[in-house]
Amino acid sequence: MEILLEPFQFAFMVRALIISVAVGIVAPIMGSYIISRGLALMGDALSHAILPGVVAAVLLGVSPFVGTIPAAVIIAILIGYLSRRIGFSEDTTIGILFVGLFALGLAMLSIVRGLAVRLEDILLGQILGVGWGDVAATVGLGVLALLLLYAFHKELVFATFDPVGARVAGLPTGFLDNLLLVVLALVIVVALQAVGIILVLAMLIVPAATARLLVRRFAPAMLVGALLGVIIAIAGLYLSFYLNLPSGPAMTLVAVILFAVAVAARRRVSRHP
């Protein structure tokens, strides 16, 4: 019991806990759409491509949120637009923007030395050093993302399952696709501090995929994913505290282990029905 409570004598751990739980809830709910629509590469690319936005915000001395939200939203829309216009497949377009912007961010970081930010923290997550302002911004954005997904749930579901049928039925599928990308951008910004750029994808898809193994209906799988996400986030936070690991890898390892357990359990069940 003491092992469980001890970390939370520290205010920084309380802040980290709040952010972890927020990420644990929001990311898998968004992730349910990512795995249904095959947007994993998009999620990964988006999280990398906002690095210039993060660096620019730090340079200007403002909160990273100020730089990342517009960067992520613009990039998300740009990817959708370019893949429709240029005619390369979407993954090629995404790949090019992904590496280009990530490289730009890295170049900006190494040109401007002596910043009050470490590359490692941006890449791997640095949840133990967040302030109350970050907590408020993370929770606020998380709630906004959830509200948008809730408000447009039935339309997003239809457009994800049968985009052609949805369009014929009179739904604005282009708007819905862009809306989903904007929410994805918000969720990535939310998850950034907890797990870092490289591992945002982990919180987006691993708990959602694990939930899909356990539950065979979309909305219930979303909720199970959120529950798993919270477990993963909290367990990762303890690992991070006691083993002195960056929070991103700690949470990711827990997530992947849970996934492996679910796969093994399902194989066992299907072998002995």
Binding site: F161, D162, R212, R217, F218
Partner: peptide, 20 residues
Amino acid sequence: RVNWRFPASAWDVVMMGRAR
């Protein structure tokens, strides 16, 4: 042309028709 990866029950699919 339908996304069969999406886990919908028969009920869910028919309810989609009500969306608009």
